[in-house]
Design a protein around this nucleic acid. Structure first.
Length: 197
DNA sequence: CGACCGATCGTCT
DNA sequence: GACGATCGGTCGA
């Protein structure tokens, strides 16, 4: 059901996203997500049940990583969320950096940490060292880990808005499938329109 | 500020 | 051969 993925997209807010590659650990708190509901969602790569070599990963059971190259430059990280053959996924759009900030700066080729370090899907993937070669790997055991925090309850208010950069999706571009923590400075750009306002 | 533009390449038609 | 689920820089008001 679609509600599973939408629910999970909100659930992921406040959770930790951690990568451990070659002994280097970097992590951050998820503050912004977008749900892509597969076959029925014009914004999804799997709209209409489309299967290609690239999208095949989304048809794996939930818990796998789907990473693809955008504009030839950016590696965008998604979590596959549903049962086998139901290509739902959640794009992680922003995190608040927690651990390994020195490594993130190096990967991002920056001297100082500012909000741009992990704001936006391309930026956070680069900061955490996530690449398209990680697509299709199972989370938790492959170096990319999602963890629930003890004190996750200070999540705050969850805001729903329309997804970024999917104008090609027609009316589906207006669906409130983007979720973020209200007022969090790491949330990426775009006007926040609350659902139904 | 906001608008615009170039980078850069794997993927699909 | 066209085109991105983006980013960072520049330019003008």
């Amino acid at each position: 059901m679609e509600t599973d993925t939408l629910h999970l997209a909100k659930e992921l807010l406040g959770m930790m996203l951690i990568t451990r590659f070659e002994g280097v650990e970097t992590s951050g708190r998820i503050v912004e997500t977008e749900a892509y509901l597969g076959a029925t969602d014009r914004a999804s790569h799997a709209f209409g049940g489309k299967r290609t070599q690239r999208t095949e990963t989304m048809y794996l059971p939930g818990g796998h990583a789907y990473v693809y190259l955008c504009y030839g430059i950016h590696h965008l990280f998604n979590i596959v969320t549903h049962q086998k053959d139901v290509p739902h996924a959640i794009l992680i759009r922003a995190i608040e950096p927690i651990e390994g900030i020195e490594h993130m700066l190096k990967r991002r080729n920056k001297a100082k940490a500012d909000f741009s370090l992990t704001r936006g899907p391309g930026s956070l993937s680069q900061a955490l060292g996530i690449l398209t070669i990680h697509s299709g790997l199972l989370l938790q055991t492959s170096g990319i880990i999602i963890a629930k925090e003890e004190e996750a309850e200070k999540k705050g208010i969850i805001e729903a808005s329309s997804r970024i950069g999917v104008d090609y999706a027609g009316s589906d571009a207006l669906l409130p499938y983007r979720f973020s923590l209200k007022g969090n400075p790491w949330v990426s750009g775009g006007k926040i329109k609350t659902a139904g306002s």
